[in-house]
Design a protein around this nucleic acid. Structure first.
Lengths: 288, 288
DNA sequence: AATCTAGGGTCAGAAAAATTGAGTCTATTA
DNA sequence: TAATAGACTCAATTTTTCTGACCCTAGATT
């Protein structure tokens, strides 16, 4: 009731952003991940916001957090506002550097599919700069500053090629393989994120079953490929990613059977895509 | 062209806000004022943003700054986004403390008009808390977190009373005044922000002219009122602000002539006004 | 039951950012 | 010819923010 403190400061933008991310993603840890900070920072921001408001936004318990009624009421408005802000920010960057195209993709795609195509793209469109950021999962395009995304699966954008898989190995290893059954006797390499690959292919190649491939799993597909090239075993290969090694003869496909994961290599863009992004998109589509 | 740095950080929210304010208000100094920081901070933020974008947003020269073409293209989107964010933030505070009403007003109005009415309001609606922030000019309601504004002039909202002015002084001083001409012999107090008041009143009271009131000007109306009560001279009084002193007999109006400044005491609200804000508004309107 | 795991909370110290404040510079105004 | 207004620079300082290591709880797993 008194003549109040001189400057009623606005709510902190960082705190609002932390709250919005935590509420939208359903947890402080996920919010910290998206914002690129530690969970403790998110905790602190949300707490500061709650103190400032004099009201509780989350109900905490040991297994996570849930929005309070108040939190649920204010979340939609905040999310919209941050969507607008992200769009404006993205627009700003696009206007400032119209010839720069940011692509988000899997590390393996970046290395084995995208990277080999860049020299040609640079030759055709030297005025365009491409920047590539590797990540495990497609980003939220409403927030993250990328122009194009290139990932397996989903249903967005256009499918470039089907995801076809089949075993590949160094020629020296192939010489020891006479039949699918021989796979039981060699290390079968795989990627931890694609642990179903062997089972998928075997279901197509040897429906009667009976083979349980064993071997190391790598958290980076590039490591598994490298090992396969070095003769460490048989890798379950994704066609789009091992095509160059096959063409160069560093890897061969010992069996003719091929399977599809049911997913595709897909390319999509963040609207509104500028001319440079559209050109890169068109070119990548054609090159597939 | 290389596989780029791991984390393409978003543009800093503070930097975006500083740029937006500077661009909208047409100057770094004005932006600093609105944001409640020093001009140097705004300079630094804008510079950081320009470096980050690799493009120039403002064209600087000695008399100020002008937006570049790039700046002009990105400003509208950013301003809209920050409008949304401010609205969401305001909504959040309103939801968290629905019984709290923030009022922005002139220091003099706060002290002499609003404050005396608060006890009665508290009696009638004890569940409502009122917080008052004094400032020299009406805030930008699209951004500042106030529910109600109460200022002289403008055309927003509803007019509570006309701004009527006339000389007032302590009774002891009044005893020495027989005619308007006697004003030449006493200190004529005024507020620096309302320096035209004496001339306005004299034009009405003594159209033939010939009187040039002299006396100290105060940067705070409250100081001038205090001096007048203490018998330091004759103050050109605003009816709404000196009514209590007149009623209590601490000040008297030595002359019957009254003039109007052509402005009114006006009350308006930031949409959407909540129930508490509307109730305070209704009550203030009726009490006028 | 014990153990494991996921998700949060807390805290002190450290790192980074923002801010200030004094001094400069340059056109415009008086 | 001052005086003024607006912006810039830079170093020092203050404030904010972040991290990293720890604890805690509840459900899932052994």
């Amino acid at each position: 009731m008194a003549v109040a403190p001189p400057k009623p400061k606005d709510l902190s933008l960082s705190a609002l952003r932390a709250f919005e991310a935590a509420a939208r993603l359903g947890g402080f840890a996920a919010a910290a991940e998206e914002l690129g900070v530690s969970p403790g920072a998110v905790t602190a921001h949300v707490k500061a916001l709650e103190d400032r408001l004099g009201a509780v936004l989350f109900q905490r318990d040991a297994k996570g957090v849930r929005l309070t009624a108040l939190g649920q009421r204010v979340l939609p408005g905040l999310s919209e506002a941050f969507d607008h802000l992200a769009a404006a920010s993205h627009h700003m960057q696009a206007e400032a550097a119209p010839q720069l195209v940011h692509i988000a993709t899997l590390p393996a795609i970046a290395q084995f599919w995208l990277s080999p195509r860049l020299p040609e793209l640079r030759r055709i469109a030297p005025e365009i700069s491409v920047s590539i950021t590797a990540m495990e999962a497609p980003p939220n395009l409403k927030r993250a500053p990328y122009d194009l995304c290139l990932f397996f699966g989903g249903s967005q954008g256009t499918a470039l090629t089907e995801d076809v898989i089949f075993p590949v190995c160094a020629p020296s290893v192939a010489a020891r393989l006479r039949s699918v059954a021989d796979l039981a006797d060699v290390p079968c390499l795989s990627d931890t994120a694609w642990s179903e690959d062997w089972a998928l292919w075997l279901a197509a190649a040897q429906p009667e079953g009976g083979i349980a491939p064993r071997g190391p799993a790598y958290s980076l597909y590039a490591l598994a490929v490298e090992e396969a090239v070095n003769g460490a075993g048989v890798l379950i290969g994704h066609e789009a990613l091992v095509a160059r090694h096959l063409a160069a003869g560093r890897l061969v496909a010992p069996f003719a059977e091929r399977a599809t994961t049911g997913r595709s290599l897909r390319l999509w863009s963040a609207p509104p895509a500028g001319p440079a992004a559209r050109q890169v998109m068109r070119w990548l589509t054609e090159s597939a």
